[in-house]
């Protein structure tokens, strides 16, 4: 009888220990690691600490061919949240440079970045960019890395490697993919689908949220108005621009479910 009790106790302890280990494997942010996305309605959905995991790979894909710029805008906005004034390394594949050109420095404040933050890798092959991403993730002065690829996504192994690198150093990678590249499966912590919506807004869908205690409703979606029409933005007020107060979520409507 006593032995049985002892065994049960042991089993419970083992299960607890394994659970603890699992939690480590699962990418659940602790309070210090959660970074708010900048949109209140979205943050409300991100349990338990209402933020995105700092040491994670966040994948943002365009819904349609024409939505790459919107996806990149959302990605840059997240990067600004993560970087918090530190340097942002952005990399662009050659194809993407040919298709959309390069980020325009004078427009960076609209997504909450200032150009002094930006270090840009202007057109390289994807393998080179992946290498550069890993190097940049290892640099303590870098706040966030953004990787933009239009037609080619890193394969699962590569993304798993990057995801683990992010986890190890506690720095985020924002992977912006075009509609064609977005079909591939990657080991991302979160996956967002962005499409441009009328009236200067984005349609945001959260397609995957790994390691969340409370799963988001399937196909959680929002229509996000990142800018008020008359929002004074200059280099000095950039940091204000990215705070949740000044970024309004105009309407919160769940698509599907």
């Amino acid at each position: 009888m006593r032995e049985k009790k002892y065994q049960a106790e042991q089993r419970r302890l083992t299960v607890n220990r394994l659970r603890h280990k699992l939690r480590k494997f699962e990418l659940v942010p602790t309070a210090g690691e959660a970074v708010p996305s900048g949109f209140e309605a979205i943050d409300a959905c991100l349990s338990p600490h209402h933020g995105l995991l700092r040491g994670g790979l966040h994948e943002i894909c365009a819904a349609k061919t024409g939505d790459f710029a919107s996806a990149a805008g959302f990605g840059a906005h997240l990067a600004a949240q993560f970087a918090d004034g530190n340097a942002v390394v952005s990399g662009q594949t050659r194809q993407s440079v040919g298709e959309h050109g390069r980020p325009y420095a004078l427009a960076l404040p609209t997504v909450g970045l200032i150009r002094q933050q930006l270090i840009h890798i202007n057109g390289a092959d994807l393998p080179d960019l992946l290498w550069a991403t890993e190097e940049a993730l290892g640099c303590p002065a870098v706040g966030c890395v953004v990787l933009m690829s239009l037609e080619q996504a890193p394969d699962f192994t590569a993304s798993r490697r990057l995801s683990m690198a992010c986890r190890a150093v506690g720095r985020p990678l924002v992977l912006v993919l075009g509609a064609e590249a977005g079909q591939a499966s990657t080991a991302a912590t979160t996956r967002w689908q962005i499409s441009a919506a009328p009236h200067n807004s984005w349609q945001v869908r959260l397609q995957r949220l790994r390691g969340s205690f409370k799963r988001p409703p399937p196909m959680a979606g929002w229509q996000v108005f990142p800018w008020r029409e008359t929002l004074p933005v200059s280099d000095d007020t950039v940091s204000d621009n990215t705070t949740p107060e000044s970024v309004s979520v105009h309407a919160t409507a769940a698509y599907g479910s």
Binding site: A69, A72, G73, A76, V97, G98, H100, G101, R102, P103, Y104, L106, A107, L108, P109, T110, V111, W227, L231, V233, S234
Partner: peptide, 14 residues
């Protein structure tokens, strides 16, 4: 003389 950031595109074609 700097333009308003909202009036400029995030990506400018080459």
């Amino acid at each position: 003389t700097a333009p308003e950031p909202q009036t400029r595109p995030l990506f400018m074609l080459c």
